[in-house]
Design a binder for these strands. Structure first.
Lengths: 152, 152
DNA sequence: CAGAGGTACAGGTATATACCGGTATTTATG
DNA sequence: CATAAATACCGGTATATACCTGTACCTCTG
């Protein structure tokens, strides 16, 4: 039962390390990779209800609700009542969009840095493995858009 | 630039999912995988100073200190002054040892379950990749060179 | 249409995580 | 030896994460 053989502990540790890398790269935006990723996820699907967004991100809805609260207070997104009175729809603000645009090149830098640590084959395999680990999988947003740019 | 192509976001998501699997398996112990892993790590190296344990686990020392506090309150480990008056040495209690023994088969179940989702080859590759990712966490994107702009 | 049951979210509680600044202690330096 | 610098830890603050409970709202059924 060596700890280094625990897939979960290793994955968590790698996750912390990689998060530090991305957070550092994004530091000048004032947001971390979790927040930027969340903004991006909203941008892909807005307006979207909290429940749906939670499933999309495999996050507990209550966790997501609090995470959204942070971004709402910073006026990067808005939470408004949906047609169904129970739901709250999430939408990016102009500032939120602008932040994504600013974050894009910084994110690319971190991604390149992370990618350099992997061989092409290794990265493909990692992706396949991550997909397996993520299990369920709702449709992976087929023709996925990219980070918003000035033109979008 | 689909969010699913962000290595960090994917790793974090896989980490959450896998953590849920292990936590569920360990639920009857009253501890989660992070706590069990920490107990195990202490057991491997006790008595050990917080700083050293933090490095071993790639955790911020203040984070680790708080995590240890939780386990100390449950009397699974003790924190005592070291020879160096600044350090606090971590040691498992009998209860802490006992909990590790109880957790072992439950952990094995979760590990097997996780392993079933991977091919043998895939798992080897994942381990190699995780090792790569865990290596060096120093000065990240300081002077990141060009970005391999793929098709962008 | 009224009540039962399901759904979406908010908030409480607890832990995980990191950064920063402060304090005590040790080590290095003149 | 006195003091500056480095070290190890603690506590404040903020966010991330999940579970559980309560509440408002919707939907289904008799």
């Amino acid at each position: 039962m060596d700890q280094f053989d625990c897939l979960c502990i290793r994955l968590r540790r790698a996750s912390r390390a990689l998060t530090r890398l991305y957070d550092e790269a994004l530091s000048e935006t004032g947001l971390n990779i979790a927040q930027v990723g969340l903004l991006f996820s909203v941008w892909q699907a807005q307006p979207i209800a909290i429940k749906a967004l939670a499933e999309k991100n495999q996050l507990d809805p209550s966790t997501l609700g609090r995470n959204l609260g942070v971004l709402e207070r910073r006026e990067l997104l808005t939470l408004s009542a949906g047609k169904d009175g129970r739901t709250r729809m999430v939408t990016l603000t102009q500032a939120g969009m602008g932040l994504l645009v600013r974050a894009a090149p910084l994110w690319e830098g971190a991604q390149s840095c992370a990618r350099e640590r992997l061989t092409a084959d290794g990265e493909r395999t990692l992706r396949a493995l991550l997909t397996l680990l993520e299990e369920d999988e709702s449709d992976p947003v087929a023709e996925s858009p990219e980070f918003p740019s000035e033109e979008s």
